[in-house]
Every structure is written in structure tokens, then in C-alpha cells.
């Protein structure tokens, strides 16, 4: 654990503020904390998510590259991610939070 605050980490690269805002709104509605890290260097969306999960004290990370979003957790490193999508960004945020709350996805 390199952080004490329980937050989902979002690593974003070459994406729009609107997409990010929707994801964050989803997390906020589920009453969880988050932290956004903007990446300058171009990275694969899967890599972004994996790296974000590693930095999250909740083990859950979201990678956003352009229009693509991947939600994963540390336990799934190298495996199929939890969720991915290129629309319904609010729902992806909600489900990332619901994973931590152990609630079924919507």
C-alpha cells in the first residue's frame, strides 16, 4: 500500500474532459473517492488501467485512452479486465465503484 486514502485511480491519456467527467460522476454517485493522473507518454489503454490499479489503495484502476475505457483490478493483472467500453462512461464509473462495494454491476 503506497497510499492511505481509499481511492480509485484513473489514468487518462489523450482523452476529452467530457468522457472523464462522466466516469467521475459515476464514481461520485456511488460515494467513492478517486484520483486522476494525466499521462503525457502514449500508453495502451490496458496498460494504463493496470498501472492505475497498481497505484490504487483499493486495487482498482481505470485506464482512459482517447474514447476507450478499461476498468481492472490488481488481481486481474495479465488477464481479461473487469470491464471495458467506448460508451456508457457513467455506467463504467458506477460499476468500478460497485466492484469495490461488492455490489452487483448495473
Amino acid at each position: 500500500m503506497n497510499q492511505s486514502k481509499p481511492e480509485i485511480v484513473i489514468m487518462a491519456c489523450q482523452t476529452s474532459k467530457e468522457i472523464l467527467k462522466e466516469i467521475l460522476a459515476g464514481i461520485e454517485e456511488e460515494q467513492l473517492f478517486y484520483k486522476v493522473i494525466w499521462m503525457e507518454r502514449q500508453m495502451d489503454v490496458q496498460q494504463l488501467a493496470t498501472e492505475a490499479a497498481k497505484q490504487s489503495s483499493l486495487d482498482v484502476g481505470i485506464g482512459v485512452f482517447q474514447r476507450n475505457v478499461v476498468v481492472t483490478c490488481r488481481q486481474l493483472e495479465g488477464k481479461q479486465p473487469l470491464l471495458k467500453g467506448d460508451n456508457g462512461y457513467r455506467r463504467l464509473g458506477i460499476n468500478a465503484a460497485r466492484y469495490i462495494k461488492k455490489n452487483p454491476f448495473v
Binding site: Q75, K79, L82, L83, R98, K102, N103, P104, F105
Partner: peptide, 20 residues
């Protein structure tokens, strides 16, 4: 890992599969 669609749900454990 189990399928994400099962996550957090109550499932019926049959011989063959888990039904959410």
C-alpha cells in the same frame, strides 16, 4: 477469475454452472 457478470450476485450452484 469468475465472470464479471456474476460479481456481487447471488448464484445458484448447479453441477454444470453458476446461474446468477
Amino acid at each position: 477469475p469468475l465472470a464479471p457478470k456474476l460479481f456481487g450476485k447471488v448464484v445458484v450452484i448447479t453441477e454444470k454452472e453458476m446461474i446468477p
